[in-house]
Computed example of a mutant assay.
Amino acid sequence: MSRPVTLFTGQWADMGIDELARKAAKWGYDGLELACWGDHCDPDRGAQDAAYARGRHELLAKHGLKCFAISNHLAGQLVCDPNDDARTDAFAPEDCAGDAEKKREWAIETTKNAARTAKNMGLSVVNGFTGSPVWHMLYSFPPLPPSAIDDGFGRFAELWNPILDVFDECGVKFALEVHPTEIAFDLYTAKRALEALNHREAFGFNFDPSHLEWQGMDPVKFIEAFPDRIYHVHMKDCATTLDGVSGILASHLDFGDPRRGWDFRSVGRGDVDFEAIIRALNAIGYDGPLSVEWEDAAMDREHGAEEACQYVKNIDFPKSGRAFDAAFGD
């Protein structure tokens, strides 16, 4: 049986959920991965109002769609982010603006509520970000003592362990999308994040190959390194376009600028080897959704979302239950 193909709604939060569900069904999706912003899913309300939480399923069911996970990226970012500039003000309520710790307090409670909402929806996974106390120290100049990074991972554990206690109480897992600006942005930092949390089961990963690909890694190696921690999968593509002038750090150029050294692409139109990823997911027994996170600044998003759905359905295939040459043995 093929895995369900869903659409992550984060890039569609400007569109009402009923309208988006209608379009997604027409495009061929099996479900939506609901973002916890816009009118798609309110984690604070869903934590307190079981009828609202169930109603998310009922709304999608009208269009023949299901929900397998919700995503709490924006609030999660503020848990560990320094929160010391205006960029993060947009992620939190207006009365938190300019107050780093007020944003953090709101983010922690909202992330806990995402777990409670997932429980009320009968879901087992919440995707999201963690933020990072040390991302701004990525390039070690001024010189940085190793203890500063150790302290950063300790701070991550200090902030996230109480959140994960609520996830455990709810029987829900948190799946970090390994991503620049998060505590884990590659394979080594992912290992370190798990170690900081003593490998507690509530914490795993939302595998997104695009963020690994443009950094120069083989995304399949990530699946092989964490076979029991792939709790959800994003299908997103990217392409590196280094030409001897552009750089991998993207030169402070906006997405979509042709001068960038890399950019996101519609699924199947970039550098990611999705067939190798499907084979690796089959090898670890992953049978959850393949969720399209559609981002391509040079393509109409509705055209891209429909095309991406069909691409993912075509590239997916179930694992064989027998060796192809078994028939020769009898």
Rank of each mutant, 00 (worst) to 15 (best):
W106Q: 02
Y52P: 04
D85E: 12
A69Y: 00
G46I: 04
L78T: 14
G28W: 02
T110F: 01
S124A: 14
I17W: 01
C41A: 15
F68T: 05
G28D: 02
L123P: 04
N72S: 15
G131A: 11
K103Y: 07
K26T: 13
T130W: 05
R87T: 12
C36G: 07
G128F: 10
K66S: 10
N83G: 07
T88C: 11
A97R: 15
A47T: 11
D14M: 07
F129S: 15
A13Y: 03
C96D: 02
L20W: 01
G16I: 05
P43R: 05
T111A: 09
E19H: 09
E58P: 01
I17G: 00
T88W: 08
A100T: 07
E101N: 15
S124Q: 13
V79Q: 09
D18A: 15
D99V: 03
N127T: 15
R45V: 13
H73E: 11
A24T: 06
A21E: 02
H57M: 05
I70C: 07
T110H: 12
K103V: 07
D85W: 12
G46N: 08
V125Y: 04
D81H: 14
E109R: 15
R54T: 07
I108E: 09
D30R: 03
Q48D: 14
M15F: 05
F8C: 13
T6Q: 03
F68E: 05
A97F: 09
W106N: 04
G131I: 09
E101V: 09
D18F: 03
L65E: 01
